[in-house]
Design a protein around this nucleic acid. Structure first.
Length: 425
RNA sequence: GGGGGGAUACCAAAGUGGCCAACUGGGGCAGACUGUAAAUCUGUUGUCUUCGACUUCGUAGGUUCGAAUCCUGCUCCCCCCA
């Protein structure tokens, strides 16, 4: 299958070096993407680039995933306005291990065992001495060339340490190394990586007198246009089930608006063009059924987590968003509740607190962190946004042991989408 | 080294002695309408024992019946001249 052609219809082709398509059509090629260990788990932003490798493998090529044990120590200045904080070695090692594991799992699940070649640039950088490096690598590139990169230029005005300035040399050297040792002639990445990638192909041309190719994909943005993930806040969607539960992960995809879901289904699933076209057509004919969102959520949750996690997420979503009532909830067994609400924030409260009834305000503000203050608790009650066991409650409402589901649980809902489970002891 | 300007809630930005828990915009959170969408409209966005009280306007003091607003020290930021 023609990889570039595939990328083109999926809307994943932002920039491509001339001759790349022909080069890839000549036979099986090795291509890589680098991931810096900025956290111990990948997030959806990484997933979008990781999918490039998945598609690459799917088209019959050899994917190489590089974990940046070395580059992570330095920090990529791209899209950073401030100098990056250096990571401690211990934290770095943990991050490398986490990311390594996730990438391997993901790629093998999508492409079969043994499809992925995992490398860590720390392995070839750790014994490289500074002198050797500046003589071997630094000699081939001019500072003029390096400073002309956008990632550097933007920072020159505000300051950029020599450390981060050197980042592109490290990434360039990675490409050179893979070219020489793994016959890797192709690098992919997000569109912000173009500068760093080109440094690599340039280095290969000058030092190894070889020819290497590259392509970048548009960055995934949220509905509001901001870039996914990285270090902004905790609203990131992580691949690690501990950080973002499969249920939440599933909901993330379900909640995408129409435009986004059409983009995402091309990017994040391996479905064929004909099938996707059909889904989109069906969806547009009847948008209320959210066909694309549902399929997207199903595919991605299965890929990243598992079929079992998906089934639970669907069951949970059905109960939470379907027309279920208090009676439905009461019919659930204790075990079913536990399974369905896996990953929903849970608070433990004392049974004695409930015996004589307790004001909902006190319950939410004192016994849990559903709201951050009593003022907020009252406000949300006035706004009519709080439900207990699927029934809206007002300011005066009280909760007692009579409200317990299965003698153990109370389901609190704030707004339409935020659920909390209270477990009585 | 000299001169000038600034620091206000999540962000931006008004307010320059009492009408200020603090205009306005963005963001957030919710409600209505919907399709768990978008757009739109509405409410809300310091804390509490909530028709009232308390704590907030860089920081520490002071003046005053009363200060985000005036004075002094300190810290940090920006600009201009050398």
């Amino acid at each position: 299958m023609n990889f570039i052609e595939e990328m083109r219809w999926r809307g994943l082709l932002h920039d491509v070096m001339p001759g790349t398509e022909e080069h890839l059509l000549e036979g099986k090629r090795a291509g890589y993407i680098g991931f810096d260990p900025t956290a111990d788990s990948l997030h959806v932003g990484h997933l979008s680039t990781a999918m490039l490798l998945v598609h690459f493998a799917h088209c019959g090529h050899q994917p190489i995933a590089l974990v940046g044990g070395a580059t992570g120590m330095v920090g990529d200045p791209t899209d950073k306005t401030n100098e990056r904080q250096l990571l401690y070695e211990e934290e770095l090692n943990k991050n490398v291990a986490g990311i390594h594991h996730q990438l391997k799992y993901l790629l093998e699940k999508a492409g079969g065992e043994g499809t992925i070649n995992m490398v860590n640039n720390y392995d070839w950088m750790k014994d490289y001495t500074f002198l050797d490096f500046i003589r071997d690598i630094g000699k081939h590139l001019t500072v003029n060339y390096m400073t002309s990169k956008d990632s550097v230029k933007k920072r020159l005005e505000f300051g950029l340490s020599f450390t981060e300035f050197s980042y592109q040399l490290l990434q360039g050297n990675d490409f050179l190394h893979l070219y020489e040792k793994h016959n890797c002639t192709f690098q992919m990445g997000g569109s912000d990586q173009w500068g760093n990638i080109v440094t690599g192909t340039e280095l290969i041309r000058r030092k190894a007198e070889g020819k290497a190719y590259a392509m970048t994909a548009p960055l995934v943005t949220r509905a509001d246009g901001s870039k996914f993930g990285k270090s902004d806040g905790n609203d990131n969607v992580w691949l690690d089930a501990e950080k973002t539960s499969p249920y939440k992960f599933y909901q993330f995809w379900i909640n995408q608006d129409d435009d986004m879901s059409e983009q995402y289904i091309k990017r994040f699933t391996l479905l064929e063009k004909a099938e996707i076209d059909e889904l989109i057509e069906e969806h547009r004919a009847n948008p209320g059924r959210r066909i694309v969102q549902n399929r997207l959520a199903k595919e991605v949750t299965t890929l990243v987590h598992s079929k079992e996690d998906l089934d639970l997420a669907i069951t949970a979503s059905g109960i939470l968003f379907g027309k279920s009532t208090k009676e439905n909830l009461q019919q659930l067994s204790k075990q079913a509740i536990q399974e369905v609400f896996e990953g929903v924030p849970t608070f433990t409260i004392q049974k004695t607190d409930l015996e004589h009834g307790i004001e909902v305000v006190d319950l939410m503000a004192d016994k849990t962190t559903i709201v951050s203050s009593k003022g907020e608790a009252r406000r949300s009650l006035k706004e009519n946004s709080i439900s207990i066991n699927k029934e809206k409650v007002g300011l005066e409402a009280q909760v007692s042991t009579a409200d317990l589901l299965n003698d153990t649980y109370i389901l609190v809902q704030k707004g339409k989408k935020n659920y909390f489970l209270l477990e009585v002891q």
